[in-house]
Nucleic acid binder design. Structure first.
Lengths: 219, 219
DNA sequence: TCATATGCTGAATTTCAATTCATATCATGA
DNA sequence: TCATGATATGAATTGAAATTCAGCATATGA
């Protein structure tokens, strides 16, 4: 499993491959899978159409490579962050900081990713989404266990820990999309999100008994 | 602007149109725009291909009709809910209840909607998203004004009101997607979401001064 | 009943993009 | 320098799907 032969040929091959992936990612994220032709990718990446087929057996394979390679990268960075030493809040904060950086550094990819996971995308047919959804779910579950421990330690109040993960993930997505649509307005960081998520928004009604207690089912 | 002539012909025409839209929505949401052919829509809706072109000038026009008509319906229902009489919490609760019902009753549409707004979809070219994003933004802004008033009245604690809307919207989307992917696990309702959003998740660190104060910029 | 208008049909046409493959180009080492 | 294998090229092929339109069916009303 070592990188035994990074021969010049090999490195060149990989550089070319990366170049194609980069150009294709940009185009796909701008126009969607079906509105980008192999000719366009060829032109923009300065290779001939035939050459693309030396690297990827067909258009879908190319697309699949883009999605899967980055999805793995995202997944391992995010679960890795959850292993940050320290208390549960530290771990959650680390996760969020990594997520924000990943998103900001990969805006093009994020568009594609959400098209795949939330949208009605072509790959429903290709069954690509299975793996991605699986990875995503694993991260959420790991977050769930962290919230769970935090609750045991009375660091967080009692609440279904998996759903807390879902909620925090949802808030951060919303902020990141907001950023994506209006890059200048509403700059934000991990603190702002954690702040809204962890502190009470509401001031007085709870004491008056107008709100129900949080659901405490666990995963 | 009245519905002056709902003649039999007219009604028949509209029924046919609706039938086509319904079938097309189902297909598009299952397979995505480019993986559904006009022939398939014709077959499933029991019309001839040529007939589809009597109702819609081309495939994109048909798609556009689906998205825009329902988007308007959603938008007016959601902003309408914000006019519910009562205090700010009531209004927000009404909005959330309407949103949940709309989502649950229109799962197929929701997939398409998110493909359009968050994903890399074909319509980026068609410029369809402008209108939709505009409507979406207006609803968020209206929520913002409600949070603002709630903050003035000391009902909610101080925090950028627009971002509170973004956050609540994000949480509810996350829960709804969770539901969409795992219909049986984690059933939820407006109470659960409001509960997580409005009450403090975190128990003790804030008092120890480990969290920053919430950003108070306003829109 | 028939003439006319209105709407429906689907085979034929047209368009467009994925994929192939015979040929050209390049790199290596004898 | 030249032979040979490896790699890149892009014109030509192929297939799939959007769109058209000449003719058919049905409803209306004289």
């Amino acid at each position: 499993m070592k990188n035994v032969k990074p021969s010049r040929k090999e490195r060149e091959y990989l550089r070319h491959r990366q170049e194609i992936l980069k150009v294709a990612l940009k185009l796909f994220s701008e126009k969607g899978f079906h509105n980008v032709s192999m000719h366009e990718i060829a032109e923009k990446s300065e290779f001939a159409v035939g050459t693309l087929y030396k690297f990827f057996s067909n258009k879908e394979d190319l697309y699949r490579a883009i999605i899967l390679e980055k999805a793995k990268e995202f997944h391992s960075a995010l679960t890795g962050a959850l292993d940050t030493p320290g208390d549960e809040l530290k771990k959650i904060r680390a996760w969020l900081e990594v997520k924000i950086r990943l998103f900001m550094d990969n805006l093009e990819y994020v568009r594609l990713y959400f098209a795949e996971t939330h949208g009605a995308s072509f790959s429903i047919r290709a069954g690509l989404d299975r793996d991605i959804q699986e990875q995503y779910k694993k991260t959420l579950q790991k977050m769930g266990t962290i919230f769970e421990r935090g609750i045991e330690k009375k660091l967080f109040r009692k609440c279904d820990p998996y759903l807390l993960g879902v909620a925090l993930d949802g808030i951060s997505n919303a902020f990141l999309f907001e950023q994506l649509d209006h890059p200048d307005k509403h700059p934000f960081d991990a603190n702002l999100i954690l702040d809204i998520f962890f502190q009470q928004v509401y001031t007085s009604l709870y004491e008056k008994g107008e709100m129900k207690k949080c659901n405490t089912k666990t995963v």
